[in-house]
Amino acid sequence: MNTETTSTAPAAPGRPVTQAGALLVMMRREFWEHRALWLVPTLFAGFMAAAALVSTRASISIDDADRVHADRAMVLNVSQDAFAGIIFAVAAVVVSFYVLDCLYAERKDRSILFWKSLPVSDGLTVLSKFLVAILAVPLLAFVLATVSHLIALIAWSVRARYGGFPDLIGFEPVAWVRGEAFLLVIMLLGALWYAPVVAACMLMSVWIKRAPLLWAFLGPFLLWLGEIIVFRTHYVGSVLQYRAAGIWRELFSRNGHEISINGNSHLLSDLNWGAAFTNANLWLGVVAAGLFLYAAARVRRYRDDT
């Protein structure tokens, strides 16, 4: 019998599916599975907007009655930051749980065997989950913060016009755009700075056999405690502390001194953006994130439901 092994497909190639197209579809899939990613920040944003609509009192103290225009910008920016701060914090909590679960849940419910039956590479899968955590959810949080704040602002403005609220609330276009730009840049800096943390959590999610969530919290804690007890040093603690907040200290200091911030500061021009974005550890962290993601894809390659 004359035998040969086929090397290429004689059948039609089928519809073209681009990598970028597949990536977007896979990111959408994450929001189907992990509904908390959009549901929780949306609920918080809705709650805050609703609270502004029904609020009956605003307590704003005025330093100088002559500076109403400047104070209006200040009130606008401070409330803008407050809305964003709360929604970003909520999103950060949700994302923390997500990145530790995203490559573990599919093994736990055995659906990895279904996902792997489709022509999607491990690299693309890991990348889609990373982009959801580092880009999609923060962008969603930004939009939610903007929308809910605008709703609140309209409610406050109406109140201010018809009495009861101090006349310090109003829309200041320049201040508003500056405020939004500030939030976007902060978001970008945060994404870059926390990228290695997110990628490391994903690596734990794919690597640890059982309960990655528990180990992600317990592991660093035990390392920290063990180092103190055994070596009487604090390297683990300082590394963790540095990665938690190091970049913000950089951003808020100039020439070794802390930048003093008050309500009237122009954060976009006053903060030390140059030092923050040229920080070597920021970019080393991004490189580390790339390595962690590569490792996560390699580990997932031979992971199944066991």
């Binding site: 497909a9 059948a11 189907w32 599975e33 055995r110 659906s111 279904f114 999607v120």
Partner: peptide
């Protein structure tokens, strides 16, 4: 995997999927 399809066992479709 573009030319191979598999069904491993029953019930590997995730429960949340519509």
């Amino acid at each position: 995997m573009k030319q191979v399809c598999f069904m491993a066992d029953v019930a590997v479709l995730p429960r949340w999927l519509r």
